[in-house]
Amino acid sequence: MRNLLSTELFRIFRQRKTYYAIIAVFILEAIIMISAYMQGREILDLFLENLTDTFEFNGNLLNGNLIVYLVLNSFWFHIPLILMVVVSGFLTSEYQDRTVEAVLLQPVSKLKFIGAKYMAALLFTAFMLALLIVTTFLFAYLVFGDGDLVVYLEGLSFFEPHEAFSRLVWAFASGSGTMLFYAVVSLTLAVLLREATATWIVAALFLLVTTLLLRFDFGSEGLNTYFFPKLTDTWQALFYVEVPWDAILTKSLVLLGYSALAALLGIAVFIKRDIT
């Protein structure tokens, strides 16, 4: 398994498309930062509009923390979309080039082969997220400086810089769980569909429907809490005044369960199916 995993990682970083994905993430990050900077003032004016009669404000709210928070919001759609396209490509390209067959002609078990794929998908996702998170913090603080973070969630909440930083880091950690879920799902879709374009379309559809269902009221407490679309925005809870750690932990574990389930489904189908 370690050998398979190391060759997976070696090949991932020898492919041009990996670098296209990294560049895409950077471009996305830059666009989000620029639009965050341009929109940030407008958002702040809206947030503070009704307080301007009563108060004068001292200090800069359009700072690195707000920019990082706005980049974090890109977790809603953009980052998972890029991740799903790239991660599903790890397998669909092998089906297309028939290298799945070539590897399985060697003394390699199907379980280990597909297991290594899932591991590589998780590691690659973690790498991309680390890259995104580190560069976001770095650029945001370097360019926009430090300061209080204001967010609108159950009212306007202000967090002091060290508090904002720790909440943002935890939110990124929690959001990363969601990204890993999407990565695993996309690989399972690749196992099921095998063909790149079909997998991309279904993955994008999955993401779209999940995002829509997040806001949908199922009329049942259980579904509204534990159906997987409802677990994809757990990271938002890090910005409640009182962080509901227990709920975050429970939801994260349930989402982890969904990820494991998706992976098991993919592994089972891959093992059961003939390589034709």
């Binding site: 404000f57 200090g59 204001v150 159950e154 009212g155 306007l156 202000f158």
Partner: peptide, 29 residues
Amino acid sequence: YVNMPVKTAELSYQQGNSVRIRSEDFVMI
């Protein structure tokens, strides 16, 4: 609808001028 921690600032007053407030943090005056 505002959740803001207690803020600390330095306030200075000179007769005839309006007060000046200095703070590392964002404060609402």
